[in-house]
Design a protein around this nucleic acid. Structure first.
Lengths: 165, 165
DNA sequence: TCCCTTCCATTAGCCGGCTAATCGAGATAA
DNA sequence: TTATCTCGATTAGCCGGCTAATGGAAGGGA
């Protein structure tokens, strides 16, 4: 079927992403921050005291994933959970002073890496790159939607026998 | 420090990557294949019976990670470990018949998603995209190298070994 | 009032990634 | 020959992602 994965653009993209993550990790670990946490920290500096569900949605992660992550960060003293006064069902997340300091350092790191990543990109290069990524994003989102509605239909009438998973 | 993470290209890139992974996962799970396994399967179809260390290097993953993954895949009947006849220290990894079938299906899926990703890319778009990604890759690799040698110096030794965490 | 549903948070259990530590076979030097 | 070193594989333990199941508070309807 002549598909060479090694030469696929998605393969290159994956590789670049992993390399990016690795670099971030190398530079933030000294601040006691772990590789999945920077996006969350960024959202928290934008607005403190958000509820977990909202944060999860913003970070594009499942609420369960976020909950565990916050538990770890709370143990590390970076954030703090406080129940909402009006609604005992939700808990709001706040940055501690330590968390604020760490976030500042992490932000510098992210900025530095971003600059290095695109040091040899012209302004137009960046615009083109963004546009292409956005196009890819939109089509992937569409594909995801197609597959999910398809799966839902399959679950309605009869059971799809899935021995493995 | 005027750095807006939400608008950073790396942020968009991360998002696209995750979306890609998610789509792959949706379509391969029916074949009993998990999201980290496709790259390994692709390498195995290229050449059967490689040793774990070599495979790990090709998939850009630590040997320990690969070892666990192969353990799971072996349990699932996709691959088979056989010790090398000449060197009992290494174990070679082979696709089973079931693994070959699954790989074929996975390859179709990857191809289909690749096509969807870039359906609205002209040939030139793709060439430009590849070139930009490659540039990013090279600079990230350079940055990684700088940070790792830096870390080594900080640890006092001047060994040629990799910088450990 | 009581039941039932809905919603957020949490827990459990899995896979994918990592590092550090250990084991066992080869290779090498004393 | 023996002691040591090297190297691949493995194991243990952690973080980051997911789904499924559980729990508890709000809210709505009979």
């Amino acid at each position: 079927m002549e598909f060479n994965y090694s030469e696929a653009l998605t393969h290159l993209l994956s590789h670049v992403y992993r390399l990016y993550r690795h670099n971030v990790d190398l530079l933030i670990q000294e601040y006691g921050v772990y590789p999945g946490q920077p996006p969350l920290l960024m959202r928290l500096t934008e607005q403190d005291g958000q509820i977990q569900k909202e944060l999860a949605s913003k970070v594009h992660v499942q609420p369960a994933t976020l909950n565990v992550m916050i538990g770890r960060m709370e143990k590390a003293g970076l954030v703090e959970r406080r129940p909402d006064a009006d609604n005992y069902r939700v808990s709001r997340v706040y940055l501690t002073e330590k968390g604020r300091l760490a976030t500042s350092a992490v932000k510098s790191v992210l900025k530095e890496i971003e600059e290095r990543c695109f040091a040899r990109f012209s302004a137009e290069d960046k615009a083109v790159f963004r546009q292409l990524l956005q196009r890819m994003h939109d089509d992937l989102r569409q594909l995801k939607h197609e597959n999910e509605t398809l799966t839902m239909k399959g679950q309605g009438g009869e059971q799809t026998y899935d021995a493995k998973r």
